[in-house]
C-alpha cells in the first residue's frame, strides 16, 4: 500500500479516537474562543425583543432526547428572554420526553424565583397529541375549547392567564425548537400562512440548508442554528451557559474533521496525479 493509499484510507478508529480527544480536551481546558453572533440569531433575538409586553408567545418544544444537547441550551436562553420581556408563554409539546425537557427548562430558568412569574398566571405547559398540523391549528385558533386542561391536569379556563384571552389575536409570536423538518415547515404553513403570526425557529444545523429559504423569503423572522445558534442567543441575552461551553468543543472537533478531509484529499489527488499503486 502506497503512502497515498494510506492517506486516503485512514482507519476509522484513529479518527474516532482523535475526535473523542478533541471533544474531551476543551471540557478540561476551555479554549475561550470568541463567538461571533450570526445574523439569523440576531434576527431571532430582535423578533422576540420586539414583542409587546403582556401578549402571548407560543413556545413549541419538539427535540426529544436526541436534540436535547443541541437545543435545550437554546430553549433555556430563549425562555430567559421571553420572561424578561414579560410575555405570557404557552409552552407545548407532544410527547413525554419533551414534557420532561420543558420541566428541565424551568429548573434552569427558575421563572418563579428569578422573574417573579407564576405558573398559570404567566406561563403554562400543554401536552397535545395527534398530527402536528392539527396541533398547531388547535393552539393558534381554538385552544380553550379543544384542550380543557394543561399538562398537569388543571383547567385552562380557570387560569388567570387565560382570562380575557381571545385566541389568535393575543398570540403575537410563535417560537419553535425542533429536530423535525416536518414540524419546522408545518409551523410556516400554520403560523405564517394560515394565522399570520410571526415565527422564530430553531433546529439542528443539518436542517438549516432546507429551512434557510423560508428565512430568506421573510417567512421566518430569525432562527437558531444548532449549538452555534444557541451560543449566539446566550451571548445576546447575556446569560452564557452550556452552549457557550459547547462551542469550544465544536470548534476543536471541526478542526480535526477538516484536517482529515484535507488528508483524504491529499491522498486522492496524490494517487491520481503522482501515481503509486499497491
Amino acid at each position: 500500500m502506497s503512502l497515498w493509499d494510506k492517506l486516503e484510507a485512514v482507519p476509522n478508529w484513529v479518527l474516532y479516537i482523535l475526535v473523542l480527544l478533541a471533544m474531551a480536551y476543551p471540557i478540561f481546558r476551555p479554549l475561550g474562543l470568541p463567538i461571533v453572533v450570526g445574523g439569523p440569531s440576531q434576527e431571532a433575538y430582535k423578533a422576540v425583543d420586539a414583542t409587546p409586553e403582556g401578549t402571548y408567545a407560543v413556545f413549541h418544544i419538539a427535540y426529544g432526547a436526541g436534540g436535547k444537547p443541541t437545543l435545550q441550551p437554546a430553549a433555556v436562553a430563549m425562555s430567559h428572554h421571553l420572561f424578561e420581556k414579560n410575555l405570557k408563554v404557552i409552552y407545548f409539546c407532544d410527547n413525554a420526553v419533551d414534557l420532561a425537557n420543558i420541566w428541565g427548562i424551568f429548573d434552569e430558568v427558575s421563572p418563579d424565583t428569578r422573574y417573579g412569574k407564576e405558573y398559570g398566571s404567566d406561563y403554562v405547559v400543554l401536552s397535545l397529541t395527534g398530527p402536528f398540523l392539527t396541533q398547531a391549528a388547535v393552539v393558534l385558533s381554538n385552544l380553550l375549547e379543544t384542550i380543557p386542561t394543561d399538562a398537569r391536569g388543571q383547567s385552562l379556563k380557570g387560569m388567570p392567564m387565560f382570562q380575557g384571552y381571545t385566541e389568535t389575536e393575543d398570540i403575537n409570536i410563535v417560537c419553535q425548537l425542533t429536530t423535525s423538518g416536518d414540524i419546522s415547515e408545518g409551523w410556516v404553513y400554520q403560523a405564517v400562512s394560515r394565522y399570520e403570526r410571526r415565527l422564530v425557529g430553531g433546529w439542528l444545523s443539518m436542517m438549516t440548508s432546507s429551512m434557510i429559504p423560508y428565512y430568506q423569503a421573510g417567512q421566518i423572522q430569525g432562527f437558531i442554528d444548532g449549538s452555534k445558534g444557541a451560543a449566539d442567543y446566550e451571548v445576546l441575552t447575556n446569560k452564557p451557559g452550556e452552549a457557550v461551553k459547547i462551542t469550544d468543543i465544536l470548534s476543536l472537533t471541526q478542526v480535526v474533521y477538516l484536517l482529515f478531509i484535507i488528508i483524504g484529499n491529499v491522498g486522492y489527488f496524490g494517487k491520481k496525479y503522482m501515481g503509486g499503486g499497491k
Binding site: 471540557i27 443539518m206 449549538s227
Partner: peptide
C-alpha cells in the same frame, strides 16, 4: 454545505453526552 452541517449536528449531539460522562 449540507454535509458540513450534518457533521456539526452529529458532533453537537454527541458533545452533550461527552460532557455528561466527564462531568
Amino acid at each position: 454545505a449540507s454535509f458540513g452541517n450534518t457533521v456539526m449536528t452529529r458532533l453537537g449531539q454527541y458533545q452533550g453526552r461527552m460532557i455528561f460522562l466527564i462531568r
